[in-house]
């Protein structure tokens, strides 16, 4: 008899877990104390250097999933040091070794929720801060997601903007 196992979508939640997930919210941190491999400075990149979000998160405007930056994105600017920061030195080292930086994802949706960034950011012009909080002002990576959204937050915005509130518009 062949070995059988559950699907590759990670652990299948129990019924109770599903209910709790729904109650806890649509967008939540996967862990409360996240240590990023590099002390990335959002404020410097976004506010001082005026880098748009989609430069490092290519799907955040034109894709369904925002995505975390690959090393090829960092290599566009950090092939050589731009300053004296020890954190930047780590990036330069990774670029030269062509080694991915293991960024830790902070914002995670339950698997039964469909969310498209392009629909919200590009079409509906929802600001990133609306769901992600003041990430652009951070000089150090936050240890947890800056906002925890519940389904009520989604519904409130959908109602205000006249978007669909059908269950199956977002659930899958």
């Amino acid at each position: 008899m062949s070995r059988r196992r559950t699907g590759s979508q990670g652990p299948v939640p129990s019924r109770a877990t599903g209910v709790v997930l729904a109650a806890l919210g649509a967008l939540a941190a996967c862990s409360a104390d996240v240590q990023q491999p590099i002390g990335y400075n959002h404020d410097l990149h976004v506010n001082k250097l005026e880098t748009p979000c989609e430069t490092c998160h290519p799907g955040s405007k034109k894709g369904v999933v925002a995505t975390l930056p690959s090393i090829s994105v960092c290599s566009d600017c950090h092939g050589d040091p731009q300053g004296n920061s020890p954190e930047e030195a780590k990036v330069v080292e990774a670029v030269r070794a062509n080694k991915e930086i293991g960024w830790v994802r902070l914002y995670e949706l339950p698997r039964h929720v469909y969310f498209s960034h392009r629909r919200h950011v590009d079409v509906a012009q929802v600001a990133c801060e609306k769901c992600h909080g003041p990430m652009a002002a951070r000089t150090r990576p936050p240890p947890a997601a800056l906002m925890t959204l519940t389904m009520n937050d989604c519904l409130e915005c959908h109602t205000q903007r006249g978007a669909s509130t059908d269950c199956d518009a977002c659930h899958r």
Binding site: T6, S8, S14, T17, G18, R111, H112, Y114
Partner: peptide
């Protein structure tokens, strides 16, 4: 198990 559709939620027991 490696070919599941990522667009569809796997329903639990």
């Amino acid at each position: 198990a490696q070919t599941l559709n990522p667009d569809v939620f796997v329903r639990p027991r």
